[in-house]
Amino acid sequence: MNTPDWPDQIFDVLKRAGVRQIAYVPDAGHARLITRAHQDPSLQAVVLTTEEEGIALATGAWLGGVRAALLMQSSGVGNCINMLSLPANCRAPLLMLVTMRGEWGEFNPWQVPMGQATEAVLRAADVIVHRASTAGEVAPMVAAAAALAYDSRVSVAVLLSQRLIGAKQFVTQGAAP
């Protein structure tokens, strides 16, 4: 499988948008972006124990005049819900990049409930949702989402579909009974 370009393109978009803090819960789909963030001395990469920490971090960064972005997997969206009231009340921007599980060729049934609920849950919490399904649309979509979030001071999530990322392979060959 070829290494996709879109993670590096996201990194470039975030840099151009002036993002200086990147918070994340480790995730295979974001692995390349996380590595790039740690390698860049002009960025502060913050590893979280749970995704909601990153919502609060982003609001604190904004208070201090700095832009933050938050990387997570769809399962982590469910951990964020009450904390989303923080940027909403504060008219603080929030940019979330969410790698999707539980929707395209998913092997692990435990990923399906939250994966299927992700978009509805975000919209219910007043987060604007974009969804990227092809590699070519990722960079312009993240750039637009960043502008929307930071300029209009709203919460925006870009869902990176599982079809784009590729279903996680647990077994190399054959089918289970």
Partner: peptide, 17 residues
Amino acid sequence: GAMGGTAMVGLGLALAQ
């Protein structure tokens, strides 16, 4: 509100300032 988030707001601010 946002109970449980105060320390992390502090961290985001501390890194920014």
